[in-house]
Amino acid sequence: MEIVLNTPITREKARELKAGDIVKINGVIYTARDAAHKRMLENLEKGIDLPFDIKNQTIYFAGPSPAKEGEVIGSVGPTTSYRMDKYSPKTIELGLTCMIGKGSRDVLVIEAMKKYGAVYIGAVGGAGALLSTCVKSCEVIAYNDLGSEAIHKLEVENFPGIVIIDSEGNNLYETEVQKYRK
């Protein structure tokens, strides 16, 4: 089923999405990858707030290439999500409802998605040039010193994805691969 998904996404809305749903995402999403996650959660332990209100938000595991003159953003495909597995249970607990990335997730992440209501959406890895055409604005809102790993606030239109793991723990990687295994 193809669904137009507008951000922010409530926990209730996240629970409605099912593995296999084809989505087109519109609205604000935030990029964060290894270094930004590490800093966000280390800061939180020191009592420093996250650089944006994470409630009902979407994190895109990505670090764009630099924009040329006149471009909104460089190439911006997903990075491999398992490296954020250490951090995602906490961000979900804090209110994150949607993650965009590629690749498998740890059982603890999936447990948190089930418990709180969150969804994991796959974007096509290695299609960064194509995905960049869906980004209408881009602003670094925190951790500028991290370069590509800084937190970018993106406004996207018709950003294509597919629900890989839903809030019931259904996992498209498992169900689809079985169909083609010989």
Binding site: A62, S75, G128, A129
Partner: peptide, 18 residues
């Protein structure tokens, strides 16, 4: 989509992947 991406990257001289 990967084919389309490769064409776009070449045409715009933009990285195929970030």
């Amino acid at each position: 989509q990967l084919i389309e991406n490769a064409k776009l990257a070449k045409c715009k001289n933009k990285p195929i992947c970030q």
